[in-house]
Structures are given as C-alpha cells and as structure tokens.
C-alpha cells in the first residue's frame, strides 16, 4: 500500500489539466465510486438473503436456531458492506471536491455527477438513520434491509442513468469516457490498476474483520443469556399438567 501511495505521488503530472500535479488525485478518486457502488449493491443483496430465510420459508417447521444464525450472519454482512460502501461514498465526494476545485475552480459546481452522488450519499445516510431508530436486532435487520432493497433502483438510476441522460450529459464537466475511451494509459493506467487492486484487497480484509467482530458480539450476547438461564433460572418455563380444581 505504501509503495502504491508513493508511486501515486511520483507519476508525472498529467497534461491537459488546469493544475497537472493535482490530476494525481484521480488515482485515488477512481477506485472509490467503483467500490462504493459494488459494496452498496452487495449490502442490498445480503439484505435480500436475510429476507429469503423469512419469506421463502415462512413455515414454522424451519429450525429457528439455524434461521436466526443465518439471518444474523447475512445482516452482519449487509451492515459491513454498507458501512464500507458509505466510507467509499464519502471518499468519492472528498476526492471529487478536491479535484473540482483544482480543475473547475470551485469546490462545488452543481455538476450532475457530483449532485447525483450527493443524493446517493443522502440515501445511505437515511439507511443508517433508520438502522439506529430500531433497538431490536431483528427489526433492525428487517427494516433497514427492506430500505436497502428499495434503494437499489434509485441508486442505479442516479449513478448510471442520470449523468448519461442527453439533456444532462451536455451540462456535465465530469468526463464520462475515461475508461471506455482509453484516456487512461501508460504509467497512469498501471498505477490506477494497482491502487484499485490493493484497495479492493484491503476492503475485503476490513469486511471480514467487521463481520468477525460482529459475530463475536453476538456470541458474547448469547453467552450472557446462557449464564442468566443457567445461573438463577430467571427465564420462565413450565410443564403442562391437568387442571386440579380445589
């Protein structure tokens, strides 16, 4: 990671930019929206898996222990993906704003891509607001998962369709053919690929770490419940017996 960072500062300044040395921010800006969108979609897919256990098999004959464990695991994957996705959304905005100032002379220029990505940021802020509004873990998973599924279409529209609409495209200063048009080549191309690969690997590591931490938390909570049950028998139980009237 250190080598890639150093390399990103050592690549020659790009020609054709207002401030060629600031063009290097692109190397870090480029992987962020890609990973952000991928993680947000993965988060939505994980939420769908939470529901599949509930809706596909609503029968009471499904073992709830397995059901509950699987739901918890997929919910942890969903929240891990959403948290990392949101981090990359923020990094996209931060690097984009820096570049906007360097290239277009304003921190915020109401560029359609900047604006649409800000709405994506708001959508996912709403996701976290919703998650914090529920205290029960089952409800947290279900309701925030439903919201993340409902956000798929608007997010795809905002990221892929809206900036390419004919009436919008002409208003945008943001290039839209850097990759497909082959504008990134030579040392820039190699460096951007390396950074993308390294950031992706780091993301997978952080994702696994977050899921593992979540699982440990759940296990701890379960153990507490077990101790309570075994310790003083405070969890009510009973057996059915015939009624004996006095």
């Amino acid at each position: 990671m250190g080598v890639a960072t150093a390399w990103s500062f050592l690549v020659p300044p790009a020609k054709g930019f207002q401030k060629p040395e600031m063009a290097r921010i692109f190397l870090w800006h480029f992987p962020c929206p890609m990973l952000a969108v991928f993680l947000l979609m993965f988060g939505a897919w994980s939420s769908l898996r939470v529901f599949q256990r509930v809706t596909v098999k609503p029968s009471f004959s499904v073992s709830p222990e397995t059901d509950h464990a699987m739901k918890s695991l997929w919910d942890l994957r969903a929240i891990a993906a959403m948290e990392l996705g949101y981090l990359f959304c923020l990094l996209t905005m931060a690097t984009g704003i820096l570049f906007s100032e360097a290239e277009w002379g304003a921190w915020w220029s109401w560029d359609p891509r900047q604006t649409s990505f800000l709405i994506v940021l708001l959508i996912y802020a709403a996701y976290f607001a919703l998650r914090f509004a529920y205290t029960d873990s089952g409800k947290k998973a279900a309701f925030s998962g439903a919201y993340s599924l409902a956000t798929i279409l608007p997010t795809l529209f905002l990221v892929f369709v809206f900036p390419r609409l004919p009436q919008i495209k002409n208003m945008s200063l943001h290039p839209s053919n850097s990759i497909v048009g082959g504008l990134i080549k030579g040392e820039y191309g190699q460096c951007v690929c390396l950074i993308l690969a390294l950031v992706a690997i780091l993301t997978v590591y952080l994702f696994k770490l977050r899921v593992r931490a979540g699982l440990l938390e759940i296990r701890q909570e379960n153990n507490d419940g077990q101790f309570e049950h075994l310790g003083n028998g405070s969890a009510p139980t009973g057996v059915v017996r015939p009624v004996s009237l006095p």
Partner: peptide
C-alpha cells in the same frame, strides 16, 4: 423460547394440544 433485549422472557416450553384440549 423468546429473548428480548438480552433477557429470556420464557424458554424450553413444549406442549401439544389436540381437539378438545383447553389450556
């Protein structure tokens, strides 16, 4: 079993009711 907020409300409850059973 039902657990709420880390506390078990009840646990290990088992019974079976047939026609005519009133519990």
């Amino acid at each position: 079993g039902k657990k709420y907020g880390g506390r078990w409300i009840f646990r290990e409850l088992s019974f079976e009711l047939g026609v005519g059973d009133r519990l």
